[in-house]
Design a protein around this nucleic acid. Structure first.
Length: 711
DNA sequence: CTAGGGTTAG
């Protein structure tokens, strides 16, 4: 039937539907055939309102009486619009059901998602009980529902039934089987069926490719693609989409570029928004942010996913400033942020401790009536905690209607890194009382909380009870926490014995934890034993070397310090430059060590000079031991005053009013002298200073620190 | 009026 004829019929039917209700029902009733034809096109177009009106016409004109034909069309129409209650009502009223009707209902339920999918399986069973035989149309719907609900056993049974009926050789049924096993994560089975398929189309190949990508075998996906090309199959947009996600997973830039080029050459479909977004994601994951950004900027009609991919690309690459800027641009341009956007941007706030920015996002959510669900709530509480506002973090936590394991863990971690071990343990026990089963992650959080607070007995108890109580086996990460806990508290031998008793080879992290404890406890004997381990280790950074050097420096063993330094030089390792962030008037400022690029540089260094004099008068003596370079004492002292956290503090002191809390984050562990200086500044200037270093928070107030010098 | 309906990706 051609479109204009349908349109005329449609207009006629709507005219009749509206006039009949006001005048008389016997004027112009449409025939069954007419209604059926119109319903068919409305079903295809999923235009609910018009179909609903036509239904009213059919009812009032009496056409529906004892009419299986129209009833079936109506039920199919409602089902295709996802209006299952109405469809079910019609369905129930039809005495002589046919297979098409059953299929339409099963499809409606299967495509509706959620528990509705389960209804489709129930209906399928009901259909069989009434003596019907499933046909090649039935299976794809039922299999889809099984895949969606991950009903493995039922899915296998339906598969068996399809085999018995011989319909598994139908290509649609076959493809649906592949899709179902792919969702079950059973690529072995999917592959076996695929290999045995009598014929395969692009969908079969595409399903295999995306199946391997989804099940974390991107390499296999590429192998299948190779075979697909050799088999002469048509490569379409879906194929390219699967390949691009494979490249994203493998961080395979060259290959990704190849797919990009192939797409440009072989189909104009690269303008498809899904492909564009996949390209942006691929370039981001391959660390080609600039390239991704160029693609992104070229796109005129950006959807939320495009914004999210790009914002997340900046966040992942560590450019939190650009991440926040792009979010502002998104809002200004009228795009609609969703949950993913919010979580990503809050992650950006974490990185640079942008508390005011994060707080404004919280207000934005409230103002826009954005429901704060578990995921958004958790990232909000995490943001507050990482930005140094534990009280706000707890408020969000308490107001969350639903908490999951991640929410509880985030709260435990929050208390832990702020040095409030007792509260961390309390939250942990509240979680257990709430019947949430702990995992490795939350146990790591609670153990490290014990460690930061020196709660040795509590931590030891949790560690030794975790296998029997919570069925969590000790992992290297957990061992590393306990070694840290025992070592810091002075139980170095117990920690060392624990490492030796482990059934697995200790990881670098575990040795690093023990070494760090040696520094704190000034245990030279063990440190000397560990030195060899440090050399054997393959650390990404220079942390352990710096630690070792600090240990020797504290004992004034300069020869050993020089030996370590030489080793670092030989290995070509570099300490990343210190970098601190501080937020003033909703703007985050970044300071590198010795930074002179800031507009207020003159004032900052003058302020530091002034502070140095005042501190010296108050009895401060610089501790140059932690300076890693071989220079004389005066130069070392000067270098200390270049440390980025001091620049940030001085800047904040100049630009904020009395009593304002100063919040700072630094990319490395803060040095002993900065720790002393910050304590003194907090007293001298009557300022609370909250500093997050790579390990934990330090709350400086009235000349002392919340870590009790134990970090 | 006796056909009509299905699979992958986002």
């Amino acid at each position: 039937m051609n479109g204009s004829f349908t349109h005329k019929l449609l207009k006629h039917s709507l005219y009749t539907a509206t006039t009949t209700t006001t005048t008389t029902t016997t004027h112009f009733p449409l025939t069954s055939l007419q209604c059926g034809t119109i319903l068919q096109s409305l079903t295809n177009a999923k235009s609910f309102t018009k179909g609903h009106q036509l239904h009213a016409h059919i009812t009032t004109s009496g056409t529906l009486q004892n009419n299986t034909y129209l009833g079936t069309k109506l039920a199919a129409f409602y089902a295709s619009c996802g209006r299952m209650p109405q469809a079910q009502f019609i369905f129930d009223g039809i005495d002589f059901k046919n297979l098409f009707l059953w299929n339409a209902m099963i499809r409606g339920y299967a495509c509706n998602g959620g528990s509705s999918s389960f209804k489709s399986i129930v209906l399928y069973r009901e259909m069989l009980a009434f003596g019907w035989k499933a046909d090649k149309f039935t299976y794809p719907f039922v299999l889809k529902a099984c895949g969606y609900l991950l009903l493995v056993e039922i899915g296998r049974r339906v598969h068996g039934e399809a085999v018995v009926s011989g319909l598994d050789s139908d290509i649609y049924v076959g493809n649906s089987l592949l899709a179902m096993y792919m969702k079950f994560g059973d690529m072995g089975m999917a592959r076996m069926l695929f290999d045995r398929m009598p014929e395969r189309d692009s969908t079969s190949w595409n399903t295999m490719i995306s199946g391997y990508v989804k099940n974390e075998s991107p390499k296999e996906a590429l192998v299948v693609f190779d075979m697909m090309e050799k088999a002469g199959m048509t490569v379409d947009g879906t194929t390219l989409l699967g390949l691009l996600s494979a490249c994203t997973g493998l961080m395979a830039l060259e290959l990704g570029k190849g797919v990009h080029g192939y797409g440009v050459r072989h189909n104009a479909e690269m303008s498809n928004k899904f492909l564009r977004n996949a390209l942006i994601e691929m370039y981001c994951s391959c660390n080609s942010i600039a390239y991704a950004r160029r693609l992104f900027d070229e796109v005129k009609l950006k959807d939320t996913v495009s914004w999210n991919s790009m914002i997340s690309g900046h966040e992942q690459s560590g450019d939190a400033f650009e991440c926040l800027r792009l979010f502002c641009k998104m809002v200004t341009e009228g795009a609609l942020p969703d949950e993913v956007t919010i979580v990503t941007v809050l992650g950006g706030c974490d990185q640079i401790m942008a508390l005011q920015f994060g707080t404004s996002i919280h207000s934005y959510l409230v103002k826009k009536g954005f429901g704060v669900n578990t995921i958004v709530g958790t990232s909000l509480l995490d943001m507050y905690s990482k930005c140094g506002s534990l009280a706000s973090s707890r408020c969000v936590f308490d107001e969350m209607p639903e908490k999951n394991l991640v929410s509880w863990s985030a709260m435990v971690t929050g208390y832990g890194v702020h040095g409030r071990g007792r509260e961390a343990i309390t939250i942990f026990h509240a979680m257990i009382a709430d019947n949430v089963c702990p995992d490795e992650g939350v146990l790591t959080s609670v153990l490290s909380a014990c460690s930061h607070a020196g709660l040795v007995n509590e931590g030891r108890q949790i560690f030794h009870g975790m296998t029997t109580k919570y069925n969590v086996k000790p992992t290297p990460a957990l061992y590393s926490c306990v070694v840290d806990l025992l070592g810091r508290a002075g139980h170095l031998n117990e920690a060392y014995e624990l490492i030796k008793s482990m059934e697995v080879v200790p990881t670098d992290d575990i040795w690093a934890a023990l070494l760090s404890a040696c520094r704190l406890q000034r245990n030279m004997n063990l440190a000397e034993i560990l030195e060899q381990k440090v050399f054997e280790m393959n650390p990404k950074g220079v942390g352990s070397y710096v630690c070792l050097s600090n240990i020797y420096a504290a004992e004034k063993r300069w020869g050993d310090v020089e030996r370590i330094r030489a080793m670092v030089r030989k290995k070509g390792l570099k300490k990343p430059p210190g970098c601190s962030f501080v937020e003033v008037d909703k703007k985050v400022h970044r300071f590198l060590v010795g930074d002179r690029s800031h507009q207020q540089t003159e004032y900052i260094y003058a302020k530091l000079e002034d502070l140095k004099q005042q501190l010296k008068e108050a009895g401060y003596k610089p501790d140059t031991n932690s300076v890693f370079y071989d220079v004389d004492k005066e130069v070392k002292e000067k270098m200390l005053w270049d440390h980025s956290e001091r620049l940030a503090i001085a800047f904040a002191l100049i630009n904020t009013g009395p009593g304002t809390i100063i919040r700072i984050t630094k990319n490395l562990r803060t040095c002993g002298d900065c720790h002393t200086v910050t304590k003194l500044i907090s007293k001298l200037m009557c300022r609370e200073i909250i500093m997050r270093d790579i390990r934990r928070f330090h709350h400086f107030k009235d000349g002392s620190c919340s870590c009790s010098d134990y970090w």
